[in-house]
């Protein structure tokens, strides 16, 4: 076991891990941050997406030891300290961008990365950016709308067009 230290959602954390311990496992098991989900083992579903030093990465395809000293952001750190949802989270609720919720943490983290790169993405750009995030419930329709709404673009109100 080797000790690893990093900053997660603004908090300094450390723990003992094996070489093979994935960042997703460190978050879930060592830190109890179970909002980061693991939905596949081929690095495709994106339920595990977190930000490492500001970049979206698949935490199931990165070793915890490779995150030594890194600044990690997970779904648990997205809302304000008083619990107020951030603009993306709120848009996902407003536009019904989630159903079972399992892919949602990764979707929200990917959406955040997208909007940082491209503050006003088109529908096609959003769909393209979500290449590595699989949702089985929503058909993506409302996820796309939620992200457009979160970027401040006009989206018709849900179920009212």
């Amino acid at each position: 076991m080797t000790e690893v230290s990093m900053v997660v959602n603004g908090r300094k954390v450390s723990g003992n891990v094996e070489g093979r311990t994935l960042l997703s496992a460190f978050l879930r098991e060592n830190l109890g941050l179970t909002g980061t989900h693991v939905g596949c083992d081929t690095s495709q579903c994106g339920a595990c997406v977190v930000h490492v030093d500001g970049a979206a990465v698949k935490s199931c395809t990165m070793f915890a030891l490779d995150a030594e000293g890194a600044d990690v952001a997970t779904i648990e750190g997205q809302a304000a300290p008083d619990g107020t949802l951030n603009v993306i989270q709120q848009a996902f609720q407003d536009y019904h961008g989630l159903q079972c919720g399992f892919c949602t943490p990764g979707m929200v983290m990917s959406a955040a990365a997208l909007l940082k790169e491209n503050p006003k993405p088109s529908e096609a750009e959003i769909r393209d950016y979500l290449e590595g995030n699989i949702c089985r419930c929503t058909g993506y329709h409302n996820i796309v709308r939620a992200i457009m709404a979160a970027s401040g673009q006009d989206v018709p109100a849900v179920a009212a067009e």
Partner: peptide, 9 residues
């Protein structure tokens, strides 16, 4: 290549 998260690593 791949997807944005893959491209970041």
């Amino acid at each position: 290549i791949g997807d944005p998260a893959v491209r970041n690593r």
